[in-house]
């Protein structure tokens, strides 16, 4: 079984980190993983995306033409990646910022108001973890505990105090599915 994800959004929404945390969690579960970012000359404020593959066996191409899951954290990301989701795949949309309905009818659409939920939690920056919670609930790619453990392991010491907030964000995202 192989899962392919594209996480996309504005630079600053933490989309690269979402992918990294998922990769960490899956690796710690003993799965094969790869993570690649898009990289470009724009350092801040541009669009950002990354591709994550989680597999039971050695991963061939780290580049994916039609992923099994796309996470669109904003409208430009939905516009760019909606068409490439594999039929029968999952499309996770940050409905706080995406103002239109998706066109695809052959995929499972998960709408999660990630930015609003993060604001309710008091920190807009955990919108990525809300969305990631929705992703793991919808795909079952990793266990929630693995994700929390990965966060704990990889947050720098001065960010460890944000762990409870992130955990809440993940739970909120999961419950929205």
């Amino acid at each position: 079984m192989q899962y392919e994800f594209i996480f996309a959004g504005f630079g600053g929404q933490g989309v690269l980190l979402m992918g990294q945390m998922l990769a960490h969690a899956a690796m710690d579960e003993g799965k094969k993983v790869s993570w690649i970012p898009s990289y470009g000359p724009e350092m801040r404020g541009g669009t950002a995306n990354c591709t994550v593959i989680v597999s039971e066996r050695d991963i061939g191409s780290p580049v994916v033409g039609s992923p099994s899951c796309v996470v669109a954290m904003n409208l430009p990301s939905l516009d760019k990646f909606e068409d490439v989701v594999k039929p029968g795949g999952v499309l996770v949309i940050n409905s706080s910022l995406v103002t239109r309905e998706p066109k695809r009818e052959d995929v499972t659409v998960v709408k999660v108001p990630a930015t609003d939920m993060a604001n309710e939690l008091g920190n807009v920056r955990v919108a990525n973890m809300v969305a990631l919670g929705a992703v793991i609930e919808a795909t079952k790619v990793v266990a929630p505990d693995s994700l929390v453990a990965a966060l704990k392991k990889n947050l720098p010491p001065h960010r460890q105090n944000l762990l409870p907030l992130n955990r809440e964000a993940i739970d909120k995202g999961r419950s929205s599915v």
Binding site: K32, V33, W35, I36, Y39, I59, P62
Partner: peptide, 10 residues
């Protein structure tokens, strides 16, 4: 190549 340098794997 650029992709290998940027890619994360275990």
């Amino acid at each position: 190549d650029g992709l290998l340098g940027q890619m994360m794997e275990p």
